[in-house]
Nucleic acid binder design. Structure first.
Lengths: 109, 109
DNA sequence: ATTATTAATCGTAATATTGCAATATATAGA
DNA sequence: TCTATATATTGCAATATTACGATTAATAAT
C-alpha cells in the first residue's frame, strides 16, 4: 500500500524513521556534505555542484528544512543554507543512543 | 520519476543512503529494538510483537538482512535473528564520521 | 505418510518518492 | 518600470515502497 502504519509504532520510532529517511537519499547527503565542507553558508552554488535540475534540488532542500536539519536565510535574491547546529548534534546523539543499545556482552548465535 | 539518479553521486553516498533508508521505517526500527533488547537471538516472536502481517515482517527482515544489519540462523522450523555485530559498529562509525564533519568553529549565519 | 508450524515468496493494490519542465514569486539593478 | 537572476511551487510521469492475502517450502511432530 505504500502507506506506513505509523499507529503501530511509538512516536519516537516514527520520528527517528522520518529523520533516517531524509538521510536516505544520496542527493540530500551530497547537499549536506557541501554544507559541511564549506565553513560558511552556501548561497546558490548547490545547483551547479550536483547534477540535478533546480526544481529537484529545491525539493530536497525543502525536505531537509522541514526536518529541521538545515536552515535557510534569504540574502537578497538568493538564499543561504547552512546546517542547523543544534539539530545536528541532537541527531548525532539520537543515532548513538540507538547504536549504543547493543547488548554487551551478548549471549547468542 | 521515483528513480534515484545514483550515477550522479559517489558510491559512498549511495551506500550510506541505502543504509539510512533501511533505518527509515518504524517497523524496521521496532524489529531492531526487539533484537537489541533481548540479549539473545529472537526466534519467531517478532510477528506477535509488532502488529503487522507475517509476510510484511518477513519482507522487512529481508531488507535488514540484505543490508547485512541482521543475521538469520535456521533453528529447526523457525529462524533466529540477531544483529550483525560487526556491521552494527561499522554503521555507528559511519554515522559518526558524518556527524563529526561539522565544521568547528564555523563562520556564518 | 500426514499434519501442523514457521517463514519465505508471489501477486496485487494503494500510496510515496523522485525528477523535470513549466510556471510563479520575489528581489536587485538598469 | 522593465529586466535579469534566484528560488519555490505546480503538475505530471515513472518508479519504489508498503502492506496483505494466498501460496509455497521446509522441517517437526504424530
Amino acid at each position: 500500500m505504500g502507506i506506513t502504519r505509523t499507529e503501530l509504532f511509538t512516536s519516537k520510532q516514527n520520528e527517528f524513521a522520518q529523520i533516517a529517511k531524509v538521510f536516505g537519499h544520496p542527493a540530500r547527503l551530497a547537499i549536506l556534505e557541501v554544507l559541511l565542507k564549506s565553513n560558511t553558508c552556501i548561497c546558490g552554488d548547490l545547483v551547479e555542484e550536483l547534477g540535478l535540475a533546480q526544481s529537484t534540488i529545491s525539493q530536497h532542500l525543502k525536505e531537509l528544512k522541514t526536518a529541521n536539519i538545515i536552515k535557510g536565510n534569504i540574502e537578497g535574491t538568493s538564499v543561504c543554507y547552512c546546517i542547523n547546529e543544534e539539530k545536528w548534534f541532537e541527531l548525532k546523539a539520537n543515532f548513538n543512543e540507538l547504536f549504543d543499545r547493543y547488548p554487551n556482552p551478548k549471549d547468542c548465535c
